[in-house]
Design a protein around this nucleic acid. Structure first.
Lengths: 192, 192
DNA sequence: CGCGGGTTTGATGATGCTCAAGCCCGGTGG
DNA sequence: CCACCGGGCTTGAGCATCATCAAACCCGCG
């Protein structure tokens, strides 16, 4: 079975018929995205949310000095996209690109709403997903007042999968610190 | 009409019958919360989410040095609660208390799920709400790498209602800076 | 009047940033 | 086989930003 449906079933109590599976499937566009290629670029409207079947992506913006600032990192079973642009149809301030070669399933806003109306299981799924997103966001917000060291510790604790998937300078940026500081923090942590 | 329903209607396309209104209403518990009283304390499980009809609340945790760190501020039409604890039934690390005398409508997780199943309008409403939450959270996360000055500017731009509703030291903590720094930032901003 | 809560200000210091240099390692091409 | 290059990581010196702490001030209120 396709990983997306495996993933949906795992998160949902509502039963899903074969027919519903077919409909569900028909709303997703399968695609490969090569390393370094964009899913979304600054100024565009985010037409698709992407379920990542395989690979790794990152979301970032370019700050006033021209540096990339990582906002989110995604791997298998993650959902990449700019919520604001996707929902409000406003131009995005973010870039999203593939850090590794990716296989994704794309869905438009229209399809999402339609599925929500027509498939109770998907509706339940989406609620769960938003909930999980909110929980993760709350944690992230709580970490705003942490020191660099504590932020990294929490990151390693909460997302061990990501630690070896992205280079340190990317993770540093995700945490809101520089690669230099992260390097020193790690060195200090090793000594213990 | 009750402000909650006014608020729901405004966010939803699905029509709502009189009967549905009655059911909806029956799942909310009306309550007054006096200034300084808790809606949630650290260690408790977040039994209720609170729709704020009137008043202002804050969500915070106590850091290792014993200081309050504000995580969220709420006023009229806001929803106060700890997502993680509410959904997972785990003890919360947050406090939520009333900054002003409040009128709230409380709802349990059970009622929320029931309403979601039984009232399509409420289901749609909840999706919208989660969406908006996610958008706000994404913005907040993006601000992690901003300077104190930029954070404050964005705050004033995005939440002008809150600026005069909470004292500066609370807003400073919400922004992840100290009251001293905020005071200096504001002074600098005035000169221009 | 005195008190509590809030804000401002200055002096000092820690934390983390900037910039530059050097290292490591794997891949590519002469 | 080696030279070279790009990408990533580490390290040090100097610096900017922001936190800390303490004192003073402001103001509304009992």
């Amino acid at each position: 079975m396709h990983p997306l449906f495996h993933y949906i079933i795992k998160h949902v109590s509502t039963l899903i018929s074969k027919e519903e599976f077919r409909v569900l499937r028909s709303h997703f566009i399968q695609k490969k995205i090569r390393k370094k290629q964009y899913l979304l670029q600054e100024g565009e409207i985010c037409k698709y949310f992407a379920f990542i079947v395989k690979g790794a992506m990152r979301q970032y913006y370019i700050d006033e000095k021209g540096f990339e600032r990582i906002v989110n990192l995604y791997t298998e079973n993650g959902w990449a996209g700019d919520h604001e642009s996707f929902v409000m149809f406003t131009p995005s301030i973010y870039h999203i690109d593939a850090w590794e070669d990716c296989e994704v399933l794309l869905i438009t806003r229209e399809s999402l709403l339609k599925l929500c109306r027509e498939c109770p299981a998907f509706n339940e799924f989406l609620l769960k997903l938003d909930e999980r997103n909110n929980i993760a966001a709350q944690k992230r917000i709580t970490s705003i007042s942490f020191t660099a060291e504590k932020r990294y510790k929490c990151f390693v604790r909460d997302y061990p999968r990501l630690v070896n998937r992205f280079p340190q300078h990317i993770i540093a940026s995700y945490l809101g610190i520089t690669k230099d500081t992260l390097s020193r923090v790690r060195k200090k942590a090793l000594k213990k």
